[in-house]
Structure formats: structure tokens, C-alpha cells
Amino acid sequence: MTINLTLIVLLAVVYSTGFYLLMQRSLMRIVLGVVLLGHGANLFLQAAGGPPGEPPKAGGSVLGALSDPLPQAMALTAIVITFAVTTFLLALAYRSHALLGHDEVSDDVEDQRIRQHPEAEQESQAVVSDEPGEHV
């Protein structure tokens, strides 16, 4: 299979920017990172299908010169899924903003505990997960 160098360089840029944004504190930037990574992944699926050929429709074109339709179908599905999950993430960011006044990802619970108790006394304060006996 031939490799399109432009596409590969583009993919590397999109992936690294996406992962960089994913490691930020603000949920808004994380959403942007997810969007970028999603695009990168879908582009990668396209690249995996090999070089473009004729449109894959019945009767219209020569067998053997067609592009591979399978990665396109997979990319379509993946686009729908990443789109839906991005929407959910946006809703979560909005709710976080409404409830907490900011949209920052909080520290690890264990990290918070260790910071509170620099000495070995890590057990003295219980980290309590949530109200017990709650309903679904």
C-alpha cells in the first residue's frame, strides 16, 4: 500500500495537538482536544483505506479501480459516535460551570488526601465518596 506523506504529517500534527489539549485543566480545551483527536482518528481511517479510486457504486465504474468503501463506512459510524459523545461532554462542561462555577478537572482524590496530610497519618481523615443510600 502506498502512503500519502502529506496525510501522515497532517495526522501527526492533529494527534499531537489533540493530546496536548486533552492534558489541559479546562474542560473546554479538553472538548476541543477530543474534537481534534476524533477528526484525526477518522482521517486515519480514511488513510487506512489506501489511495482514492473511483466512487464505489454499482454499475458505474470498473471493478478494481474502486476506492475501498469499508473504511468510509467505518469513519461515518465513528463520526456519529464522536459527535454524540462530544455533545455529552459539552453538556457536562456546562453543568460543571453551573454547579461549581468553573469547568476545571479536579485533582485526584488520593492526591488531595496526601496534600492534606503530609505526615504519614493518611488514614486519619476519611475521604467520603457521597451520601449513602442514594437512589437510581
Binding site: 482518528a41 473504511p71 459516535i81 457536562l92 460543571s96 454547579l99 457521597d130
Partner: peptide, 29 residues
């Protein structure tokens, strides 16, 4: 509290899903 704790869950799962698409692309290629 729940929103705060589960942001991590959603983001981590999402990252693994995006890596999953990458894996599929690599395997298909």
C-alpha cells in the same frame, strides 16, 4: 461532587475510545 469525579471517567474512557479507532485504522491498513 459527582460531576467533578466523573469528568475524569468520561475523559479517560473517551481517550481510550479514540485510541481504539486508531487501532482499527492501523489494523485495517
Amino acid at each position: 461532587k459527582r460531576v467533578q469525579a466523573n469528568m475524569t471517567y468520561v475523559i479517560v474512557s473517551l481517550t481510550s475510545s479514540l485510541l481504539f479507532i486508531t487501532l482499527i485504522a492501523l489494523v485495517y491498513a
